[in-house]
């Protein structure tokens, strides 16, 4: 059963990764990042049960806290960018290049 959870976690992680790569809307990209984090959390929780200690859950808890902070800052940045560029596309913010 544990294996199933882990494979599900891997699938969700990969889907999130692909989403980050193919979507241009910064908010959607952010959602995909959250999806990847959640997939990781699932793996942590699964391992916690598999190994019979709470460390996995603890780490998942901390991941959630950090993710919350990250979302707050990331979305603030998106709002700021949108304000100046009238666009939330990650491809528009490409001045820092060759």
């Amino acid at each position: 059963m544990t294996t199933h959870y882990l494979v599900l976690s891997a699938l969700l992680f990969a889907i999130g990764g692909v989403g980050v790569l193919v979507r241009r809307n910064a908010i959607v990209v952010f959602m995909c990042v959250e999806l990847m984090l959640n997939a990781c959390n699932l793996a942590f929780v699964t391992f916690a049960r598999q190994n019979g200690n709470l460390d996995g859950q603890l780490i998942a808890f901390f991941v959630m806290i950090v993710a919350a902070a990250e979302v707050v800052i990331g979305l603030a940045i998106i709002v700021t960018i949108f304000r100046t560029r009238r666009s939330a596309s990650v491809d528009d913010v490409s001045l820092l290049k060759y």
Partner: peptide, 12 residues
């Protein structure tokens, strides 16, 4: 340097 396209998604 052409690799540095400036697109975050390329880097990702």
């Amino acid at each position: 340097r052409r690799i540095q396209t400036g697109f975050v998604r390329s880097y990702a």
